[in-house]
Amino acid sequence: MNGVLTIDRAIVDAIFAHARRDHPDEACGVIAGPAGSDAPTRFIPMDNSARSQTFYQFDSMEHLRVWREMDDNDEEPVVIYHSHTATEAYPSRTDINLAGEPGAHYVLVSTREPGLDEFRSFRIVDGAVTEEKVDIVDAKVDA
């Protein structure tokens, strides 16, 4: 594995909460971060316009709005996440064929087992999938 995704535990928890809420449909969203930082900081759950147990697609108008907002904030989509609800957290052929953000970490979670949280991260560039290490960190809170 090359590379690493460093992500706050609160964001991981928010992704799972979204995925469990929408189960058995697939859930999807973005974690934005400052451009060039590789730091996912702003959690943006998106509508799955396909409302399907086996497919997801961002709603085109929400997609435009969120991408404009990121542009205005000098942010980029650091993480693009979605859930698989009956299969493992690994990119399907569909995921690979349709991956259009070569700069993003593609996070897959699986909700197939109620008590088991599967969370994995991949780079998908030109049809090639590379899994990367995930480093979940606890945010430092000033007391």
Partner: peptide, 21 residues
């Protein structure tokens, strides 16, 4: 004019997804 690649995917096989859509 703005061009964005759709953000889409899912567990379903690609041929089946194409048929569905």
């Amino acid at each position: 004019v703005t061009i964005l690649p759709a953000v889409a995917g899912g567990a379903l096989g690609f041929a089946a997804a194409a048929a569905l859509l």
